[in-house]
Design a protein around this nucleic acid. Structure first.
Length: 431
DNA sequence: TCGTCTAACACCTTTGAACCGT
DNA sequence: AACGGTTCAAAGGTGTTAGACG
């Protein structure tokens, strides 16, 4: 994974993605644009996506008051239904590993954050439906503060303890497969297990930066896009799942969370029975696996359509209890688009201006024929085409400018992070 | 003294290259 | 030569622990 600043050091540290600039193309109906607003979420980070459809830039209204805090994470009532911002009619998202998330949420999910970056567990894994199989989409994930409080573990529960730290630079993780066709995204669950969280405000790797002891919630964004670098968009849908709320920590506070992590995370197998510290957790873990946990999150057969969408949180326990792979893939899987994306992440510079030796792009996601660009990630602009179906407005509508306000202060051509990377959306005061 | 954070550590899974057989 | 399966080592992810820090 990399960061635009690494990719374009010449831009200096002052380079950042900024708020939208005034848009000359104001043909999009303001009333319709208003419908794209997500009333309950802090959508400022997506303004670069959304502003393209607004008739004119405007000052964002103050966000509505946040819901009251629950007395403790572990005592929350059943979470409400997932909320979504929809400008992609018919598109729906479901949390694949919802039961696992609910189990953690019932205790009070904690996520370790480290200087080097730590993966989320459970990871956000979603299934999407209602996409246009032929159209291409970007999948994004970000993590936003839930409230303005800092938390402290009081031995038995989390309690607010003061005001939150100033908000850190907003970053967005781009799924490595992006952009991919709707058929690709709907073929199997989309996993964000590679997302890493850090508490390093100077993190050079582009991980999502969080404050410790703060409450956060992941959000998943779906953007209809003709290709990764595009000027025009074709609709946005944002989703969040209440059960995915968590508190960031540098060390686990609630022992029950530790137990759950060890029981559910394959990488922590060494701390189960027969492993280190087995005596400490074995009784609980054994009961958790064999008694109190009749369900298991779906496991996926290896060698699926695309590795980058699989993996993540797979509870290892009774193979007998493990359900069959959620969805068999009847036809041979296409080559994974993630391979080239991964290569891009490892050596992004090689993809810019070096077309002759670029890795082969996934044939499922052919380049736009008339793009005239040597490589999928070498384009200077993000082009999100408006079109029928997804966006809810006539295909004939003039395309809305998109990427022109993605970046602020950077020279052209505009660098745009490749898939699997992060967007630095700048920093906005929250409180 | 307390709460928080960091780095080293051992154990584990994942990944990919090398090798072999068909 | 191409393909598929197996093996192995390296890379990376995990929680624990001790100690540093404010």
């Amino acid at each position: 994974m990399y960061h635009p600043r690494e990719l374009y050091p010449s831009l200096g540290t002052g380079y950042r993605l900024g708020p939208p600039q005034p848009v000359s193309d104001s043909s999009f109906p303001p009333a319709l644009a208003e419908g794209y607003r997500y009333p309950d979420l802090d959508t400022t980070k997506l303004d670069c996506f959304l502003s393209g459809i607004e008739a004119a830039p405007r000052t964002l209204a103050a966000p509505p008051p946040l819901p009251p805090l629950p007395p403790a994470l572990g005592t929350e009532p059943s979470p409400p239904a997932p909320e979504a911002l929809h400008s992609l009619p018919g598109v729906s998202l479901s949390l694949e590993n919802q039961e696992l998330w609910k189990e953690f949420n019932s205790v009070g999910t904690e996520m370790i954050i480290t200087k080097a970056g730590r993966r989320m567990f459970p990871a956000c894994r979603v299934s999407v439906s209602g996409l246009d199989p032929e159209a291409r989409y970007l999948f994004l994930l970000d993590v936003v503060p839930v409230d303005g409080a800092r938390y402290r573990w009081q031995g038995r529960r989390w309690e607010p303890s003061g005001k939150a730290e100033p908000r850190l630079p907003d970053r967005v993780y781009i799924h490595p497969d992006s952009p991919a066709t709707g058929a690709h995204w709907m073929r199997q669950p989309v996993s964000f297990h590679r997302v890493k969280l850090t508490n390093s405000t100077l993190d050079p790797h582009g991980h999502l930066i969080l404050h410790s002891m703060h409450k956060y919630q992941p959000r998943v964004h779906l953007v209809r896009a003709a290709q990764l670098c595009s000027q025009h968009w074709g609709g946005v849908a944002s989703f969040r799942f209440p059960e995915t709320m968590f508190i960031s920590v540098t060390a686990y506070q609630n022992p029950r969370i530790t137990q759950l992590k060890i029981a559910a995370n394959p990488f922590a197998k060494g701390f189960r029975e027969n492993g280190r510290n087995c005596k400490r957790w074995a009784p609980f873990i054994h009961s958790l696996i064999h008694v109190t946990n009749p369900y298991l999150p779906p496991m996926y057969a290896p060698g699926g359509p695309c590795d980058s969408t699989l993996g993540g949180d797979v509870r290892e326990s009774d193979p007998e209890q493990a359900p069959a792979p959620r969805e068999a893939v009847p036809t041979p899987a296409p080559p994974c688009g993630g391979s080239s994306a991964e290569a891009y992440l490892l050596h992004p510079a090689a993809f810019h201006g070096a077309p002759s030796h670029l890795p082969t792009r996934n044939p499922s996601f052919p380049q736009v024929p008339d793009s005239g660009r040597p490589a999928p990630y070498s384009a200077a602009f993000l082009e999100l085409q408006s079109g029928p179906g997804g966006s809810g407005y006539p295909a004939a509508a003039p395309p809305a400018p998109f990427a022109s306000h993605f970046l602020q202060g950077g020279p052209l051509p505009l660098p745009y992070p490749g898939p699997g990377a992060y967007l630095d959306m700048g920093s906005k005061p929250m409180y």
